[in-house]
């Protein structure tokens, strides 16, 4: 094989490799940059103009109000399933003293942020994605820019922060309802005999001090990444895109973001 043709093969291989790396890392880099942008802009008082505040409250109502019923239902099912099963089997194994620790570690710290993140993604995130992509495809984002309204300020900042706050609110509701439901099931079956306050005290007592920071952080960050991921996926479209390609892409990106952020928080806080 002649040298130029060898060079061509290597050149094509490197180009292919670069294309793959760039296309996969591009959105991650976009997320990192936009996260900084949201925090930076969110800190500035001048960001919170009347339309931005209006959009924030509208999104918060949509996220927290719209997702509350879904969260209650999922929390009740989780309470029936996971909490009751955990309490039953730990009691069966004679490890009743581990109930609080297992529930706080498994349910509140690991399962709740992921489930709440998925509910947020399905209930509000997909709607955001559809709205943002519709505005982009119709050229209305450009229209807003022409009126001097930065779409990042007008939509991405308030929606992401509303989703973050909504994640924390729904996550707290989820944890409390799932634990209470688990207790009720076990109490009806006669598995636990202590009062609900003793049960909750047992759970709270076994929460690691660092988790008092880590658990809210997971709820907040799950909501944050879902909001940001959906807004950016809706704005980052090409002429070849349509709803059939956008929704699955946005959903998989959202799920991946929730899982990654939970693992990252665990690693940072030393839980893993």
């Amino acid at each position: 094989m002649k040298t130029p043709s060898r060079f061509t093969i290597i050149h094509r291989f490197v180009a292919f490799l670069g294309h793959i790396v760039r296309s996969y890392l591009r959105f991650l880099l976009l997320m990192i940059g936009a996260s900084w942008g949201v925090f930076n802009e969110g800190m500035l008082p001048s960001t919170w103009r009347r339309p931005v505040r209006y959009e924030f409250w509208r999104s918060l109502r949509q996220v927290a109000g719209g997702g509350l019923l879904s969260v209650i239902v999922v929390a009740i099912i989780t309470g029936f399933g996971i909490v009751a099963q955990a309490v039953f089997w730990l009691g069966f194994a004679g490890m009743n003293q581990m109930i609080g620790s297992v529930l706080s570690t498994v349910l509140v710290s690991e399962i709740a942020p992921v489930l709440v993140g998925v509910i947020l993604l399905g209930r509000a995130g997909m709607l955001m994605l559809a709205e943002m992509s519709d505005l982009t495809m119709r050229g209305q984002m450009r229209t807003l820019s022409g009126l001097g309204i930065d779409p990042f300020l007008g939509f991405v900042v308030p929606r992401t922060l509303a989703m973050m706050l909504g994640g924390f609110t729904l996550g707290t509701f989820f944890s409390l309802i799932a634990l209470a439901m688990g207790y009720v099931v076990c109490w009806v079956k006669g598995i636990v005999t202590v009062s609900i306050w003793s049960f909750m005290f047992q759970v709270v007592n076994s929460v690691h001090p660092l988790d008092y920071f880590g658990i809210p952080l997971k709820f907040l960050s799950s909501g944050f990444v879902v909001g940001l991921c959906c807004c950016l996926s809706g704005m980052d479209i090409t002429t070849d895109d349509n709803m059939a390609t956008l929704i699955p892409r946005g959903f998989s990106r959202g799920i991946l973001s929730i899982l990654i952020i939970n693992v990252v928080v665990d690693i940072v806080l030393g839980s893993i």
């Binding site: 009347r50 339309p51 209006y54 009126l147 001097g148 007008g154």
Partner: peptide
């Protein structure tokens, strides 16, 4: 809201 948006912003 569409009408007032730019001025309110």
């Amino acid at each position: 809201i569409n009408i007032l948006w730019p001025r309110m912003h």
